[in-house]
Nucleic acid binder design. Sequence first.
DNA 1: TGCCGGGGTCGAACCGCTTCGAGGAGCTCG
DNA 2: CGAGCTCCTCGAAGCGGTTCGACCCCGGCA
Lengths: 334, 334
Amino acid sequence: MVSIADVAQDAGVSSSTVSYVLSGKRSISPETRRRVEASIHRLGYHPHAGARALASSRTNVLALIMPLRTDIDVPVLMGFVTSVVTAARKYDYDVLLLTNDEGPEGLRRVANSAMADALLVMDVEVDDPRIPVSRSLSCPTVLIGLPDEPGELSCVDLDFSAAAKRCVHHLADLGHEHIALVGPSPAVYERGTSFATRFLRGFTTAARERGLHTSSQPCAPSYEGVRDCLDGILVEQPRVTGLVVHNEAALGTLLSELRNRDMRVPEDVSVVTVSPDEMAANWPIPLTTVPLPSGDIGALAVEMAMRELEGVKSPEVRLLSPRLTPARSTAQRH
Amino acid sequence: MVSIADVAQDAGVSSSTVSYVLSGKRSISPETRRRVEASIHRLGYHPHAGARALASSRTNVLALIMPLRTDIDVPVLMGFVTSVVTAARKYDYDVLLLTNDEGPEGLRRVANSAMADALLVMDVEVDDPRIPVSRSLSCPTVLIGLPDEPGELSCVDLDFSAAAKRCVHHLADLGHEHIALVGPSPAVYERGTSFATRFLRGFTTAARERGLHTSSQPCAPSYEGVRDCLDGILVEQPRVTGLVVHNEAALGTLLSELRNRDMRVPEDVSVVTVSPDEMAANWPIPLTTVPLPSGDIGALAVEMAMRELEGVKSPEVRLLSPRLTPARSTAQRH
DNA sequence: TGCCGGGGTCGAACCGCTTCGAGGAGCTCG
DNA sequence: CGAGCTCCTCGAAGCGGTTCGACCCCGGCA
């Protein structure tokens, strides 16, 4: 392994000089800098990450805690993960990926053994056991999601309440009076996942404001789940003409099932959905969508972590405002 | 931060004794061990990862290099990622997640700066620039996928050739004589992704053996892509009664489109597909499937890396044999 | 001419852990 | 009774960086 001493010798300087060339924390004469950089390049020197972490108590690593669930929307999850990794690299950070099956103890392990400088926690629940732990950790933490009591922790998320309202207003503006929400899997509600409840609340609030008749049903992402969900809705709202779908995984099956039942989109029923950026256009009918900007959220989470590491920024809660992209799946009520 | 010296002092022993308690590399009297463990627990001691890596030149970290593509099957990718992380934890390893947009240089960076003990490379192409680099790295590497020349590197993958054959034989056994392959996105073929070509080869070979008429088309995962793909197939094989779908992302759209065209499954056309474990049952018609065991593959990749780290095992190529799970989407030809 | 100041470089201490050689205690055996 | 073991524990030397104080050299100024 080529070490800083090798570079120093090769360049005819001391190893501290090499270190300063690398970190830029002291001024170095142009000539020396040139020689050192040449040696670094020629020897293919890469600083030993462990040694660096030990000496500087900085790892240049971000820990990302990922849910290990099957009921969650996989593309959205993947969107977070890739955007976090990509954004982190821009700051010369790498990403350590953890699953939350270690529970809160996993956070403690990673933070206390100095494997990462900051924690990004995904899929936080309304009352998440990981929150008190990370608060006690003196390690900057950014939550992707919004718990009931963020306390001193930063949060980023889509403003799901506003997103739901936007969907409802869109349908109301088109004259729909009976609308329904196809929600996430029942399990998502049961464990108190924050975005689901926020969306539901936004939905009902906006519908009440506009004087709409509503129904809302969770929806397991299997064929049976979709069928039951639709049955449930039609019992509660036989005259439903507008559907808000907050369940990416069930979307395809739902559209098939609508056609099975001769409910044409958008002639008989308008459909508006919350789903990952790219997917909306790839359906037989282009869907009216509130995009879920997982890329933006991931990148923002990284940025907030960086600000906290620089020490310049205190924790904050950032909820991105939703856009709605109209397409052919929603229409004026007949 | 609580260090090994704190523990040592608390337990009334030297820090090397604490180290040996932790590593088990020398025998320790039961009484001493008990005291040390109590102190560790009471102080909440976690060894400093960087210091440990520096001293032992072992990081207990695996680097996983992930593709950053949109044309790849996201759930499969996610299956790899989660199973790798989960399996790694069983060996007390963590996972550093990299994207391949750093290219081969990223591998070198991570290996040379001693951030990981081994490399797991996903989505390898037939002639992948990362292969010569990782071969030069003296860092155990496991490829998920199968390049043309693995050389001294380990590989794990599903035997896609066998998988294709199994699909073909299944259809042939049911009496189908005109079959077609709905392949992955054109981009996947263009960049020489190994599994696509292996599958295609298996498909044609088996079909020839059985004397079947075939067509094969790549398929972009949009509605237009599916439509064009189906059009192409029907031009080449107007009498097609069997479809092999090797494109998870397009599957839903494809099934809708078949119904649009009044091609009933399985009465008019049988459909067999390669797709992630869980999904097969969640369609309106349960699908005959060759499961793509991403969980097994990920776990196996980790295991192989561990063997190599222990130094007991030399590189090897492991191709998992496919199973075929019959369901209602394939039937005897009418 | 002598002094001061600052840019550029060096040496050494340290970060927290692993590991190796050494050594003390207690035992057996000749 | 001492030599020779085994079993357990200790001390110290690294591992490869960062960082701080010290030092040298040189130019400017009184």
